[in-house]
Design a protein around this nucleic acid. Structure first.
Length: 126
DNA sequence: ACCCTGACTTGGC
DNA sequence: GGCCAAGCCAGGG
């Protein structure tokens, strides 16, 4: 579709950034992880990694969302003393699906990073 | 419309 | 490897 695309396709029921982010996270397979920036990029905004974190914070409680499969680009589980952060739980959930997590909450990204195929991506974004 | 806030990332020491 | 400063941009007030 070389012509009517870009910004003028409001008739195509565009998903918001937030909807895309949630769809992508739900699609992460068991035993795999993605970084905030990676998710933002697939959602169409490569520099919006922080928003992914913000969305996760606000959607805490949605059990259908595999939030524990989202970590930062360094493979580090974000540790905060806040009510919304539970590094121990996240580590446990990751290990439950055979993802290695070091004592200092670091996951080897090179091994466990998920990269969706273009086909998978199409289905997610659709 | 403007201002502020960050579950982030990257580049430079 | 670690720490710091700057850039980023969607959401909410």
């Amino acid at each position: 579709m070389p012509e009517a695309d870009q910004d003028n396709n409001s008739h195509l029921a565009m998903k918001t950034f937030k909807e895309l982010v949630l769809a992508i996270i739900k699609a992460i397979p068991r035993g795999k992880v993605m970084s905030y920036g990676q998710i933002a990029a697939y959602a169409g905004s490569p520099r919006a990694a922080r928003q992914v974190g913000q969305i996760l914070r606000n959607t805490d409680g949605d059990s259908k969302l595999p939030w524990w499969r989202v970590i930062n680009s360094q493979g580090v589980i974000t540790i905060k003393g806040n009510w919304y952060s539970n590094a121990e739980l996240q580590k446990k959930l990751l290990e439950r699906e055979h993802i290695k997590v070091s004592q200092d909450f670091i996951v080897p990204m090179a091994t466990f990073r998920w990269t969706p195929s273009s086909t998978q991506l199409e289905q997610i974004i659709a």
